[in-house]
């Protein structure tokens, strides 16, 4: 039995402890905002926050999150999340939209650590999130916009 919190709710999972967190979140908890894209930590579509830090859930056995707090796109909150999502909406960042939960989770984590990121900071933090629609121009702009909002 693995216990952890998912978006603040207590979770007890008694299935295969090797199950990647991604599939527990999607198949068992029914939260489908977190996406499968590659299964090998190459694309970032499955990014969640594990104890406040970004984590690729596709390569995270659920057994390793015992006692942790897991936050998904459905539960992400706070000033950074609000600013990022508002900026995303303001710039119409998404195209197909499939990768955007992961992009947003990475962007929120970046802003929580670096309130006013440079272009290089954005490159370094976001290089693990693939967008096949190549919405990168707007992702970059949206992160700068969100930083400006947070600065007030």
């Amino acid at each position: 039995m693995v216990t952890f919190t998912l978006n603040g709710k207590d979770i007890a999972f008694d299935g295969d402890p090797d199950t990647p967190l991604l599939w527990v979140i999607r198949d068992e908890a029914g939260l489908t905002g977190t996406k499968y894209g590659c299964g090998i930590a190459q694309c970032g579509a499955c990014t969640v926050h594990l104890d406040g830090m970004p984590r690729r859930s596709c390569v995270t056995p659920v057994s390793t999150v015992e006692g942790s707090d897991v936050v998904t796109i459905e539960g992400v909150s706070g000033a950074e999340a609000a600013a990022v999502q508002a900026a995303w909406i303001g710039l119409d960042v998404p195209q197909c939209g499939y990768c955007q939960s992961g992009q947003i989770m990475s962007a929120v984590a970046l802003l929580q650590l670096v309130p006013k990121p440079s272009d290089a900071d954005i490159d370094n933090a976001m290089a693990g999130n693939i967008c096949r629609c190549a919405t990168y121009v707007r992702i970059r702009r949206a992160i700068h916009d969100a930083a400006a909002t947070l600065e007030g």
């Binding site: 830090m53 990475s106 670096v114 990121p117 900071d121 370094n124 976001m126 693990g128």
Partner: peptide, 8 residues
């Protein structure tokens, strides 16, 4: 920041 070793 935002993509640490521990992200993966």
């Amino acid at each position: 920041a935002g993509m640490m070793c521990t992200t993966c």
